[in-house]
């Protein structure tokens, strides 16, 4: 039975739309080290939505240039290629990641909130642990759970069977593998592969719950793994499967994680995640206690 489900999951991945055209173009240009800001600007200019979003994000406090960046060219020069790459990926996957996710029962916007949260947590963790700066941490973290978008409907159909295994102490992603033949990590890796994302991002999505299983081990993967755990513990993107995930001992040892690191990073993420989300979508969240008229 799980073989049929696995085939259905893979077919669904193949039928996914690709990354929007402009974003794919610009990402290709950005990977060329000899590219100049003017050519990037030309490529982005044809997509007013992308331009507006990049400028909004560039000018958010999190990215460090509040209200001072007026053009894509300035953004490239002041933020650098790496930040531009992150901003373009964030803006181009925002729409699809906003969707509600069945199975995990994440309401609209919650997977996106989790993704941004883990991205912010990954960068905060790098600083907290005084690790060398990681160019890929933000993007790898942002994309790590993309597999949930595809796997969600299959998890919903077999939730009770998966949950029965998890209730016996199996981690949720392992229970997904047992019942569906594939977990959300592998599904995510395959999606990113089909979008032609670099192997380092594919691998981060594919192994984010099992960083100890990868040879050689990767600091980037360890960071994404711990950042994900932090956000789940503090309720960002916490689905109906709850906290049925297991921290990888090897990753904790390699990063020399102490509980104070987890708490400090958690406190930063909660303070910063809304700011980054608001920069992308002013209506997405309110930072104050929100009200709904009954």
């Amino acid at each position: 039975m799980s073989e049929a489900v696995t085939h259905a999951v893979l077919a669904k991945i193949r039928s996914l739309p690709s990354v929007p055209g402009t974003a794919a173009n610009v990402l290709r240009l950005l990977r060329n080290p000899r590219m100049d800001a003017l050519r990037i600007e030309r490529a982005v200019r044809y997509d007013p939505g992308l331009t507006a979003n990049i400028l909004k994000l560039s000018n958010s406090a999190y990215f460090g240039y509040r209200g001072t960046i007026a053009s894509i060219r300035q953004a490239v020069v002041r933020l650098g290629w790496n930040r531009m790459y992150q901003l373009i990926i964030a803006t181009s996957i925002h729409g699809v990641m906003e969707e509600p996710v069945p199975g995990y029962e994440l309401p609209r916007g919650e997977l996106w909130r989790h993704s941004i949260g883990v991205a912010v947590a990954a960068e905060a963790l790098v600083r907290e642990l005084k690790l060398p700066p990681s160019e890929e941490a933000f993007t790898a973290a942002l994309l790590h759970d993309v597999g949930k978008l595809v796997l969600g409907v299959f998890v919903a159909a077999d939730f009770d069977a998966i949950q029965d295994l998890a209730a016996q102490g199996m981690s949720f992603e392992e229970a997904e593998r047992r019942v569906l033949g594939i977990d959300h990590c592998e599904a995510g890796g395959r999606i990113l592969q089909s979008w032609f994302f670099p192997p380092v991002l594919v691998s981060a999505a594919r192994s984010h719950h099992e960083p100890d299983s990868v040879e050689p081990t990767s600091a980037l993967l360890d960071i994404v793994h711990v950042a994900d755990m932090i956000c789940l513990m503090f309720g960002m993107g916490l689905g109906q499967e709850g906290l049925q995930y297991r921290p990888a001992e090897g990753a904790l040892t390699r990063l020399r994680i102490e509980s104070i690191h987890l708490e400090r990073v958690g406190s930063r993420v909660v303070s910063e995640v809304d700011e980054v989300m608001n920069a992308l979508n002013p209506n997405a969240v309110e930072t104050e206690t929100s009200e709904e008229k009954e």
Binding site: L232, M233, L243, P247, E249, L252, S259, L262
Partner: peptide, 17 residues
């Protein structure tokens, strides 16, 4: 006050604390 699944490691036991 929930916790992630543990191998007896209490660094992540923030819920319990």
């Amino acid at each position: 006050g929930a916790n992630v699944q543990s191998n007896g490691d209490d660094r992540f036991a923030i819920g319990t604390r």
